[in-house]
C-alpha cells in the first residue's frame, strides 16, 4: 500500500518542489520588506501615515469662517428695474399680472422677495411649461443679467421677503453641513441628494444640478412643497455650511467604485443578482453544460 502511494506521488513531487520553494521565498521576502506592516489597528487620530496610505481622498478644508460670513445677500441694482419690468411684462405678466399681483391662474408675487423670484426663474421652472404638474428644472430662458433685472423689478413692487443669497464656500464647513443636511434635508432629498418621489405626484428633486445660490434660495424661500427655513431656524452660516455639503454631494468621494446612482440597496440588489449571480450562472453553464 505505502509503496503504491509512494510511486504515485513521486511523479508529482519532483517538478513541484523548486516552484514551491521559490514561491515561499518570494512571499516571505515580500512580507519582510512590506512597508509599515506593523500598523494594523485603526485609531481616531486620522494619522494617515499609520496606514501607509498615499491616496488622495483627503478632501476639502476644515477652515471655519467667522459666523455669518459664509452667506451674504446681494444688493440689486435699481437701474435695472425698467429692463426687468419689460422682461416681466413680456414673459410673466400674462399669468401673474402686470404688477405681479397674481391672477386666477398664478399666485401673487408681491412681497415674496427677490430670492423667490430668482430661484424660480434661474432654475428654469418659470415660465411654466405645463401648469398641471410640478414645475421641473430646465434650462433658464434668461441670462443671469436678465434674471437679476426681473428680480429687481418684482422686489421693487413691494418690500419684504428674503434677498438673493451669495454663498462663500471658502468660509463654510461641510462637516457642519452634513449634520444639518441629514437632519433637515435627507428626509425628502435622500441622504445622497439624489431625490425621490413624494406623495401625490410630488417629487423632491435631485440636488445635483442646483447652484450654490439656488440651494440657499430654496432653503430660505421653500419653493413649492418644500418647507421654509428662516434665519431663526437656520442661521446664515448654517445655510452656507449646508450649501457646501450639498455641493460636495454633487461629486462625492466614491471610493468604492461605480456609484450606481447613489440610490442605495435597490440598484445594488439588481447588480448583485443580475451581474453577480448572472455571470456566475454563465460560468456554471460553461463548466456544467447541459443535460447529455
Amino acid at each position: 500500500m505505502s509503496s503504491w502511494i509512494s510511486r504515485k506521488l513521486a511523479k508529482i513531487n519532483g517538478p513541484l518542489a523548486p516552484v514551491a520553494v521559490g514561491t515561499l521565498v518570494a512571499g516571505f521576502g515580500f512580507i519582510a520588506l512590506y512597508p509599515s506592516a506593523s500598523s494594523a489597528q485603526s485609531n481616531k487620530t486620522g494619522n494617515l501615515g499609520n496606514y501607509g496610505y498615499t491616496g488622495s481622498y483627503l478632501y476639502g478644508s476644515n477652515a471655519q469662517g467667522k459666523s455669518g460670513e459664509g452667506l451674504t445677500y446681494l444688493k440689486l441694482n435699481p437701474a435695472t428695474i425698467p429692463y426687468g419690468q419689460s422682461l416681466f411684462v413680456e414673459n410673466c405678466a400674462s399669468c401673474h399680472g402686470v404688477s405681479a399681483q397674481g391672477t386666477s391662474r398664478a399666485p401673487n408675487l408681491q412681497g415674496l422677495g427677490a430670492a423667490t423670484v430668482d430661484f424660480w426663474v434661474s432654475t428654469g421652472r418659470m415660465p411654466l411649461a405645463d401648469p398641471s404638474v410640478q414645475a421641473v428644472q430646465k434650462p433658464s430662458r434668461f441670462t443671469r443679467t436678465q434674471t437679476l433685472a426681473i428680480d429687481a423689478y418684482v422686489s421693487s413692487i413691494a418690500p419684504g421677503g428674503p434677498a438673493i443669497p451669495n454663498v462663500n464656500l471658502g468660509l463654510s464647513n461641510e462637516s457642519a453641513g452634513e449634520s444639518l443636511f441629514s437632519t433637515n434635508c435627507a428626509a425628502c432629498h435622500t441622504i445622497t441628494g439624489a431625490g425621490d418621489a413624494l406623495a401625490s405626484g410630488v417629487f423632491a428633486p435631485s440636488l445635483y444640478s442646483a447652484t450654490s445660490t439656488q440651494i440657499a434660495e430654496a432653503v430660505r424661500t421653500g419653493p413649492g412643497n418644500m418647507p421654509r427655513f428662516g434665519p431663526s431656524t437656520l442661521s446664515d452660516q448654517q445655510v452656507a455650511d449646508l450649501v457646501k455639503y450639498v455641493n460636495y454631494l454633487k461629486n462625492p468621494i466614491d471610493r468604492g467604485g461605480i456609484a450606481l446612482g447613489h440610490v442605495g440597496p435597490v440598484t445594488e440588489g439588481f447588480v448583485g443578482i443580475l451581474v453577480g449571480l448572472g455571470s456566475l450562472m454563465l460560468a456554471g453553464l460553461w463548466i456544467g453544460g447541459r443535460a447529455k
Binding site: S182, D254, G256, G257, H262, V266, G272
Partner: peptide
Amino acid sequence: LGGLVQINPIWLYGQYVPYKVSYAVQPDWY
C-alpha cells in the same frame, strides 16, 4: 464587484441618529 462597484457607502449615509432619516431607505434585496 467588490473593487469596482460601490456598495453601501456608509460615509455618505452618516451615523444613525434616531431622529434623522433619509428617504429611499430600502433593506438589502433579500
